[in-house]
Computed example of a mutant assay.
Amino acid sequence: MSHIPADHPPIRSPKIGVLLANLGTPDGYDYWNMRRYLSEFLSDRRVIDYPRWKWQPLLQTVILAKRPFSSGANYKSIWNHDKGESPLMTITKDQTAALAAELPEVMVDFCMRYGNPSTESKVQAMVEAGCDRILFVPLYPQYAGATTATANDAFFAAVTKMFRAPAVRTAPEYFEHPAYVAALAESVREAWDAMETKPDVLVASYHGMPKRYLMQGDPYHCKCQKTTRLLREALGWDKDMIHTSFQSVFGPEEWLRPYTVEHVAELARQGKRNIAVVAPAFSADCIETLEEINGEIREAFEHAGGETFTYIPCLNERPTHIRALAQIIREQLQGWI
């Protein structure tokens, strides 16, 4: 590039970036870190769509006065103290490293919708590294406005701030991709084979949302139901062997039913004393799986008379999961690579 003037800004070789995105995590489990994280999360209109004039005073003066303490205690119980971070952060880093090894032809990094590293900071870093094309990959198998859509919102907002905006693509939901279904079925099959006492039923527990969102057109509920069906078909099981339920209910309005915490207790009362639970809506173990499922939901089952409760971990950095994600990413990069 001898024709470039000496005072010209440096020109980097063009690169393709793949930016993974997950929900997020607080930087610590103390009150102020939890408050900052929860404030950002619960202020997202995709998550809580109440009018701001009504919601923000309640959030800032009542909810965030107490909830950071209880949420912080829950995070402390699962915290990766050796690395000083949440399990979601540790696992996402491991997934990113594994995918970078699978996809050496592109730059792979990750961001969080809430907390750090922020979407904007990672888009900026990719652009500065020379990425003129970026594929954004929300790590949510099923689309929902409160997950996939809000992650895309943050990505597009970050791109608009770039002086030299890259060409961009967003990866779609992937719950019915054969490689993902196969990886999910493999994880269940391996767990089942390792159990001395075989469960009477498998509960597929998905993160919940207000029923009102379904009635307004959010397809998440239908995608979850189909995920369960595809998993059952891949395992070759009868319909009554897998149940679909929803967890993490928040607020006074009705959410998608049945609620997992109530459903597992009812199973125990019906004589289903041995159950397993899997969380197909989560790509990595987090507070909702490690603390809520393995804590609150387990306790509800045992208090109702249940005997054996087995939580089957998320796909995390399982080799079949990484290969499935790599295949999905390569398909979305067609025409660029």
Rank of each mutant, 00 (worst) to 15 (best):
K161H: 00
A65V: 11
Y75L: 11
S86K: 05
Q124V: 10
N152F: 02
L135E: 11
R35D: 04
H81D: 07
K76Q: 11
T170E: 11
L103N: 03
Q142T: 07
I48Y: 15
T170Y: 10
T150Y: 03
I134N: 09
V47H: 04
R113W: 08
T90Y: 12
P104I: 09
T92S: 14
A167C: 10
Q56H: 14
T90G: 07
V159L: 02
L42A: 04
Y143C: 07
I91P: 08
D109I: 02
S77V: 02
P68E: 00
F155G: 01
S118L: 02
A73H: 10
F110G: 03
N33G: 08
F69R: 09
D30Y: 05
V168N: 07
V159Y: 07
A144P: 14
T92M: 12
E102L: 13
L139F: 15
A157F: 01
A65C: 12
D132T: 10
K76G: 00
P104S: 03
F69M: 10
V62H: 12
C111F: 04
T119E: 02
M126E: 09
P104C: 04
G130C: 08
Y50I: 03
T119D: 00
Y114M: 03
T92C: 15
F155V: 00
F155L: 05
D94L: 14
M89H: 15
Y75C: 01
G145A: 09
H81T: 13
E40C: 04
N152Y: 12
A73L: 13
Q124H: 01
M34Y: 06
